[in-house]
Amino acid sequence: RLIESLSQMLSMGFSDEGGWLTRLLQTKNYDIGAALDTIQ
């Protein structure tokens, strides 16, 4: 599930440099909407 969510976020133009996006998705239970809300 992480790989699916991460690949979708990467395709939106986000980077996972340093693993920050992986950690964010894990804390949000791989919910892309919740991750995007946090980023904004």
Rank of each mutant, 00 (worst) to 15 (best):
S15I: 09
G18L: 08
F14R: 00
I3D: 12
G19N: 07
I39T: 03
A35V: 15
M12E: 07
L2F: 08
F14I: 05
D37Q: 14
G18Y: 08
I3Y: 13
G19S: 02
M9W: 07
T27C: 14
T38Q: 14
G13P: 01
M9E: 03
M9F: 07
I32A: 04
L25S: 01
S5M: 11
S15D: 15
W20S: 03
T22D: 04
I32Y: 04
Y30L: 09
G13I: 09
W20D: 04
G18Q: 08
M12Q: 08
L2Q: 05
Q40I: 13
T22L: 03
Y30H: 08
F14M: 04
G19A: 03
L10D: 05
L2K: 06
Q26V: 13
E4W: 06
Q26E: 14
L21E: 01
F14H: 02
L10E: 11
L2A: 08
F14Q: 02
Y30N: 09
W20A: 05
G19R: 02
G19H: 07
Q26P: 01
G13Y: 09
L21P: 00
Q40L: 15
G18V: 06
F14D: 03
N29Y: 10
Y30D: 05
Q8H: 11
L10Y: 03
Q26M: 11
E4D: 13
L36Q: 03
G33W: 14
K28R: 08
G18D: 12
L25W: 00
I39Q: 03
L24M: 05
R1A: 12
T38E: 15
S11T: 11
L25Q: 01
R1K: 14
L36A: 04
Q40M: 15
F14S: 01
L10W: 00
G18W: 08
G13V: 06
T38H: 14
N29V: 04
N29T: 01
R23T: 10
I39S: 01
T38Y: 15
G18A: 08
T27V: 12
S5P: 06
E4S: 11
G33K: 13
L2P: 05
G19L: 06
D37S: 12
L25R: 00
R1E: 12
S5F: 13
R1V: 09
M9V: 03
S7E: 15
L21R: 00
L2I: 07
G18F: 09
Y30M: 10
I3L: 14
I32N: 04
M12K: 08
E17Q: 09
W20V: 04
S5L: 13
Q8P: 03
M9R: 01
Q40V: 13
G13N: 02
L10I: 15
E4T: 10
